Simulated assay, not measured.
Amino acid sequence: MTYTVQVKVMPLKELLDPQGKAVMGGLSNLGLETIKDVRIGKHITLQVDAADEASAKEQAATAAKKLLANPVMEYFEISVSE
């Protein structure tokens, strides 16, 4: 069966996010003062052929650990749908 797997990769919360800071400055210049924080990440969609949802999630986790996310600077979250 083919599963659609969403991988969200974000900077670690304790690290500075330079892209987020730049966007924050732009939003402030636009007068959007109510927005208090911006974090920029990546959203990756994978189509995974697997026997079951757990296998699809495991394959996506392997891809995220080995290629999609840098564990020194980023964390990832995975969700699976059919």
Rank of each mutant, 00 (worst) to 15 (best):
S28T: 13
A54N: 12
L15R: 15
E77F: 03
K13M: 11
A51K: 12
T45S: 08
V80R: 04
S55C: 02
V38C: 01
A64L: 10
L32S: 09
N29I: 00
T62P: 04
A69V: 15
N70G: 14
V5F: 03
L32M: 15
K57S: 00
I78C: 07
L32Y: 15
T34Q: 03
K13G: 12
L15S: 15
E33V: 02
E58R: 00
A61I: 06
D17W: 03
T4G: 11
L27K: 01
L27V: 01
T62R: 13
V72Y: 05
K65D: 13
S79R: 09
A22M: 06
A61E: 15
V9K: 04
K8F: 08
A54D: 13
Q59Y: 03
L68T: 09
K42H: 10
V38Y: 03
L30W: 03
G20D: 09
K36N: 14
L12K: 15
A22R: 13
T4Q: 13
L32N: 12
Q59T: 13
L68P: 12
D52Q: 02
E77L: 03
A69H: 09
T4S: 12
I78R: 03
E14Y: 04
A64G: 07
V23I: 08
K21M: 05
E33K: 11
L16W: 06
H43C: 04
M73S: 14
Y3F: 15
E77G: 04
T45C: 10
A61T: 15
E53D: 07
V72L: 07
S55D: 10
V80G: 04
V23K: 00
G20C: 07
K36H: 14
A69K: 09
L30M: 10
A54F: 00
P71M: 05
D17Q: 14
I40E: 06
L32Q: 14
